[in-house]
């Protein structure tokens, strides 16, 4: 079932540019989101990607009901986010990596109590949801400490509880792992996977491609306000073609013309003894066999091409 539908969505900002003359200024219009259409199924994790200034934050703000679209149709769970904002936001949650919803000087538990009143959560439900989320995120020890005294990882986990106490159907995550160490990132990703397994839909914007690779099934890429990709992660990978990277460590430099006649491309060579080749997956075993017969190989590894290459190509 489609939970989010955007049709020809646009957001245009009026800005001013300095013109000739001291007091003169020129009006310009910036199309932050320029006719974007997409649909997202319920229960998925959808990665909304794009370089800085691409329009993804503006899109998320419109999806959250914080900004009115300039044009187009936007429907989430049957609501028009900005027009039905008061009713709509009771069904969504949001975690902004760089904007805290917790109150800085007091413990997170006090902020949760405030959210309980605002969202009208029954006391019994509040207790059971809180216990469940606290156990999943393993933050029982930090709930009574002032927010300012928490580490970034602890704070981010507490932000997740703040955003999910009212059991939202859709949760928007804007760079939820920014600045976190590897352990904290893993904890956050694990939590997202578990909640997604229970049916919560997540819309994730991030620059950390590991988040995308580990969490997202559906990818939408926006650049210059326009959609440039909208499909599954598998399809995104296929953009590079059926290729694998072969990393070789040699016992001695390869003889001249060692790769002649082979369908491989040298993509990196850090020394005479180390090289990276790009090979067609349709004949990967034949390729490896050939390499072993032509060179003295000490070590070999076969890898997927990095996501960065695909994303960079789409961003350009």
């Amino acid at each position: 079932m489609r939970i989010i539908v955007a049709e020809n969505l646009r957001k245009t900002y009026k800005t001013y540019k300095k013109a000739a003359g001291f007091f003169k200024r020129e009006t310009t219009y910036v199309h932050a989101v320029d006719g974007v259409s997409f649909a997202i199924e319920e229960g998925v994790v959808c990665g909304l990607l794009g370089p800085n200034g691409a329009g993804k934050s503006t899109t998320v703000k419109m999806l959250c009901g914080a900004l009115y679209p300039s044009d187009g149709r936007l429907e989430v769970m049957g609501f028009s986010p900005a027009s039905d904002r008061k009713k709509y936001v009771g069904h969504i949650g949001a975690v902004f990596g760089q904007k805290s919803q917790l109150i800085w000087d007091i413990p997170p538990i006090e902020s949760y109590k405030m959210n309980r009143a605002i969202y009208g959560i029954a006391r019994a439900d509040y207790k059971s949801i809180l216990d469940e989320l606290v156990a999943l995120l393993d933050v029982a020890d930090v709930l009574e400490k002032p927010t300012r005294a928490l580490s970034l990882g602890e704070r981010m986990k507490c932000e997740f509880i703040m955003a999910m106490l009212h059991r939202p159907r859709v949760v928007f995550l804007d760079e939820p792992t920014i600045g976190l160490d590897v352990i904290a990132k893993a904890g956050v990703r694990e939590f997202i996977k578990k909640m997604n397994g229970r049916g919560t839909t997540f819309i994730l914007t991030t620059h950390d491609l590991a988040d995308v690779e580990q969490l997202a099934e559906h990818i939408i890429i926006i650049n210059h306000g326009k959609k440039v990709f909208d499909d599954s992660l598998t399809h995104l990978r296929r953009r590079l073609g059926d290729k694998k990277l072969i990393e070789l460590t040699l016992n001695e430099p390869p003889p001249p013309g060692a790769l002649e006649g082979m369908v491989v491309t040298v993509t990196g060579q850090s020394s005479a003894f180390k090289m990276t080749l790009e090979a067609d997956t349709r004949d990967i075993s034949g390729c490896i066999e050939s390499l072993f017969s032509r060179m003295s190989v000490r070590d070999i590894s076969v890898k997927e091409p990095p996501m960065e290459d695909i994303i960079t190509a789409l961003y350009q």
């Binding site: 703000k61 936001v89 009771g90 919803q101």
Partner: peptide, 9 residues
């Protein structure tokens, strides 16, 4: 201000 607009009130 998004943080304010996220509250159902």
């Amino acid at each position: 201000f998004e943080v304010v607009l996220l509250k159902p009130m």
